[in-house]
Nucleic acid binder design. Structure first.
Lengths: 345, 345
DNA sequence: CAGGCCCTTGACATCGATGTCGAAAGTGGT
DNA sequence: ACCACTTTCGACATCGATGTCAAGGGCCTG
């Protein structure tokens, strides 16, 4: 065969069997490394396999196999281009790779409809398991989309209306620490800039913000709270409005990495980066290189991914313990932006 | 059925047919929206589908279908956690989603063995097409791994030993502009910090560096050249050595985003960020927020991804034109770090 | 030398679906 | 009432593989 010319049709077991002069079943045995085949036939088959460039069709094989495994796992995250999702995805890939499993990935963009559509698409391909960072507020629909034998592991956000393993962080506690940190540096006017309030993690981060204020006897001012910031641009614009208040904030708590970046961009544009303190939820690349460097509550997406993959492979290996929620700790990383003293504009 | 209790086994066409009192073929027709089924039977089938939560098994169906399409495409990139790969992946996903196609993704980490292993794994699952940013220096092996009917589109790096569509940027020209920019700001001692020299894009960027020097009559000094920097840490360490030279560089050209970041980190640690000029290849998030903001040669991963996906779906739709290489332009983004004047240490 | 056991091997059914094709029923014209 | 034609529908083979099972051969034992 001309090596630059590709085969028109993949050879099948049958072709190999014909060339090697044995039955399909014997080829199947050799290809799967089963014992009980005479050495002479083994080498005849191996030779035929090489000669034809035979590659087993795993989808056909999983159809017939008793366990029906496809060695593929579906991963649905918020946005694969976001560094948090991307790192999580990569961590999942690394564990999956050790198990010889491939990943189907999809972004949900906070759309519950897209979530349902993709879940269906993946189960239609009979993925062995599902990793889900849900965009929906209720996942009870999974009961009739996903068969019992397919484990589901939630990441980043806990399930609602569906019983499954989950790997999350304590968002309320992380937010509480972030805001407490600002309070301890003397701030009393601390703004909250948050994600879509439909997202449970956003709710918990907001609750942590309120809790910290309450614990320090600082009155809650709804004027300092903005929800629903889906991207950096919107965060920048709403920060602009906050700074126009008669009694503007001296510090910001930005509850997600895109929001933090949007706020930083606006602060720099107005030359206020050394004036207004900021602590962000989620670490992000280069936070340490900005001036001031950015103080954050860091999640560890790699640890989240590894823990989720471990739960998943335990389930696939037959673990039938009750579902468990693993909480990965967050870390306050002090870098400078969160330690600026209050400054009256 | 208790909605919280999941089905033990997925219902099949046969189950639906039995419940609806029709043949499997009729169910197949209804499910696929084929004409020529009496309205009464259509609704009987639809009712049975709903009652059983039937979901077609697309792997089984693609096995039998004439075109054998699985509506899944394999994507192999350098590192899905790297922002360049992540954005490219996301752009591919968006186009694929419009076509109802799912993506299998994998990271290669510059390992040719991993590349071959993953290509085999994906073709074993009969992906309809392959998007590849190769780690290997020769992809002629694809001829016997990938059947003729499976289009391959290269991204970021052009193919070697294999004829396929490709979407790349002009790395040589981009590097030339970067270095020319530094030369025009008066620099004569410009260091090159590059990736593994086995990577063709790294070779082209180095060639662009040399070409710019030559065009400006600046002598080439091998002491100012470091290859093989696979990550940010190594970039930082080798920069440290460069700065210890008796005649150290006054400017840096860093040929990849991780290297740029490593170099910036070292410059900041030594307080030299306003002293030594730097231009990086690849834009990266927050480059505009650093001080000085970082001048870069930006690629547009979203444009690369969209162009690659367009080639791919054109091929899948039957386009049989000769293979084409699409070149996506790069942009010099002037932000400050590349405009610092030469400063003798 | 018969009987029993192990080792190899292949014929056949099957996984969940679709392609082919012919049978049955309905329609209209004469 | 008969024929040609269309519409509707299901029996069956098939996609590429694996599970089941029994047949055939060699070898050992009694």
């Amino acid at each position: 065969m001309n090596p630059l010319q590709r085969a028109a049709r993949r050879p099948t077991l049958k072709d190999v069997a014909a060339l090697a002069g044995v039955s399909m079943k014997t080829v199947s045995r050799v290809v799967n490394g089963e014992a009980g085949v005479a050495p002479a036939k083994v080498s005849a088959v191996e030779q035929a396999v090489r000669q034809l460039d035979y590659r087993p069709n795993v989808t056909a094989s999983s159809l017939r196999r008793l366990d029906g495994r496809t060695a593929a796992v579906a991963v649905l995250l918020e946005d694969l281009a976001n560094p948090f999702s991307a790192e999580l995805h990569r961590a999942l890939e690394d564990v999956a790779h050790e198990h010889g499993v491939l990943l189907f990935a999809g972004s949900l963009d906070e759309s519950p409809e897209r979530e349902k559509r993709l879940v269906r698409a993946f189960t239609a391909r009979r993925a062995d398991a599902l990793i889900l960072a849900p965009a929906s507020s209720d996942q009870s629909y999974l009961a009739y989309e996903v068969p019992e034998s397919t484990p589901v592991v939630f990441v980043d956000r806990a399930p609602t209306g569906f019983d499954a393993d989950a790997v999350v962080v304590d968002n309320m506690e992380g937010a509480r620490r972030a805001v407490t940190h600002l309070l301890e540096h003397g701030h009393r006017r601390i703004a909250f800039l948050g994600d879509l309030p439909s997202i449970t993690t956003a709710q918990h981060r907001f609750a942590g913000y309120q809790e910290a204020l309450r614990a320090h006897g600082v009155p809650f001012d709804p004027d300092l709270v903005v929800h629903g910031l889906a991207d950096a641009d919107r965060a920048a614009r709403s920060l602009e409005e906050l700074l126009r208040l008669t009694d503007p904030p001296t510090a910001l708590f930005t509850a997600q990495n895109d929001i933090t970046v949007g706020a930083l961009r606006h602060l720099q544009a107005r030359g206020l980066e050394h004036t207004i303190a900021i602590v962000g939820f989620d670490d992000f690349p280069l936070a340490d290189l900005l001036r001031p460097a950015v103080t954050v509550i860091a999640q560890d997406p790699t640890a989240i991914g590894r823990a989720a993959a471990e739960r998943l492979f335990a389930r696939l290996a037959g673990d039938s313990e009750p579902c468990r929620t693993v909480v990965i700790p967050t870390r306050l990383i002090v870098r400078g932006s969160g330690e600026l003293p209050p400054f009256r504009l």
